[in-house]
Design a binder for these strands. Structure first.
Lengths: 189, 189
DNA sequence: CACTAGGGTTAGGGTTGC
DNA sequence: TGCAACCCTAACCCTAGT
């Protein structure tokens, strides 16, 4: 799979919140196109924004969600080793508890800074790349190479045809009994 | 206590493998609904299929168990040094175009898994960059524009491919041609 | 025809019982 | 302690409706 699954960063969440404050929930495309946020959210689609907002709304809603409590316990209980951890990494990632809409577009500072300080265990090569990419904030030449690259990359992915369109069932365990299954089975032939 | 914990039978495993061969890994629901397998797998959910496939993949190569990988990660996190192995990068490169699917789980695709999980601690952007680098297959390292290009283009690629079959345009993030992509790219930076 | 809303599905970290 | 089975949910997909 070429797309591992991109977790939302704190910067992106902030940008989304700010975007909703500014344009309103549901104006995903508008938020996305707003130059104020596009530099942060450019990796996301309007649907991504919508989905993320839904997730945020859900988890921020009900009090403390069992998840947080559970994980909080986990972290405090098993402490085999004291944190000799030199700060850096965890501090960046761990601020998730905020209001959905904290009204103010908390100056989304340059995400790149955050990022480059958050990683630390990657190789020199990667560091180089990261540096390059972050510095690339300045428009460089059009570059035919990039286009060729695009072509190259483009042909390398494919997907199989979706099939089996039918009625919705429950998410997991579409619990039909054995008989039902057999029945279905027969019917389809 | 409604979960007796059902061990997977040989028949179920076979059906799962066959299902993956037929529909591809990741199409759990599709496999489940396929009458060819539903008579065997009707007790399982799509999530069960996914989990089982993961377990099979992990234990089949005897390389590193899921557990080990996880613990290894934990250990490497608080260690500022540990400069991760460059070897891993090279192993990733191969499979990108083929329709995975092998009767036996594991192998090639696992290498890719390994790397992404071995770098869990690094940022999203870094992941993207690594992905770009490896997929672009440029041993000397790609130029930054190319990398940025790759990332920029990545999002719309999936869309494009999905739509490709019936020519319909994408709903989200309308697909843009290479030129357009470059244009967008410049604008956002 | 593009976008949004909302239900559905997958990916991957985490948990639990043997 | 290892591992297979199972849980949780963020992230992503599908598509009706406008």
């Amino acid at each position: 799979m070429g797309a591992p699954k991109q977790k939302w960063t704190a910067e992106e969440e902030s940008a989304l919140k700010a975007g909703v404050v500014k344009h309103g929930a549901g104006k995903w495309r508008t938020i996305l196109k707003d130059p104020e946020f596009s530099s942060v959210l450019y990796l996301r689609s309007n649907v991504d924004l919508k989905d993320k907002w839904r997730n945020m709304s859900v988890t921020a809603n009900g009090f403390g969600s069992r998840e947080k409590a559970r994980l909080a316990l986990k972290r405090s209980q098993p402490t085999p080793k004291h944190d000799d951890n030199p700060v850096a990494l965890n501090t960046v990632v761990e601020n998730f508890d905020e209001e959905i809409v904290d009204a103010k577009p908390l100056a989304i500072s340059n995400g790149a800074m955050q990022i480059s300080s958050s990683k630390r265990s990657i190789s020199r090569l990667d560091n180089l790349i990261v540096e390059a990419i972050t510095n690339l904030k300045e428009p460089t030449g059009s570059n035919k190479t990039a286009i060729a690259m695009y072509i190259e990359v483009k042909r390398s992915k494919k997907r199989e045809i979706n099939e089996g369109k039918d009625g919705r069932e429950s998410q997991r365990r579409a619990m039909v009994g054995p008989k039902q299954a057999v029945s279905d089975f027969k019917k389809t032939f």
